[in-house]
């Protein structure tokens, strides 16, 4: 019976590459304001990946002005995501980078990991 539910899920967005915790990404999302639509870019670090079928999501953290951390969770299959660019991979030792919330400035840097394009 779960096959039926899986068959109702939308196709994966081809403009979203595989994301991993620690990746620095630019998320282009469609913002609907009344009947106008525009693209907004959110750039930051992926701190969480949730793999739950149609409810799969990822969370991006960025430091906004005045050093205030802003986290945004995107639904992986949402048609509101236009595309995701991966700018950089990082070497991280855990899947959920919640420790970044308690760091600031230099302490929140992550070491870059060179990976072959997937």
């Amino acid at each position: 019976m779960t096959d039926i539910i899986q068959s109702l899920a939308p196709q994966a967005n081809p403009n979203i590459p595989a994301l991993r915790s620690g990746d620095t990404v630019r998320v282009h999302s469609r913002i609907v304001e009344g009947d106008r639509e525009r693209i907004q870019v959110f750039q930051g670090t992926v701190i969480r990946n949730v793999n739950r079928g149609v409810s799969s999501s990822f969370t991006v953290r960025r430091i906004a002005s005045n050093g205030i951390g802003v986290e945004r969770t995107f639904l992986l299959l949402s048609p509101r995501i236009e595309k995701v660019e991966v700018l950089r991979h990082s070497k991280v030792r855990r899947a959920r980078l919640y420790f970044l919330r308690n760091t600031r400035g230099k302490a929140s840097r992550l070491k870059e990991a060179r990976r072959e394009a997937e």
Binding site: I4, I5, L8, P10, V32, L75, L77, S78, R80
Partner: peptide, 19 residues
């Protein structure tokens, strides 16, 4: 009842549904 899931409308709204 087959179960619950969520579907997306064309403008990206999420609707919780029972199949």
């Amino acid at each position: 009842k087959v179960g619950m899931t969520r579907i997306f409308t064309d403008n990206g709204e999420v609707i919780p549904v029972t199949v």
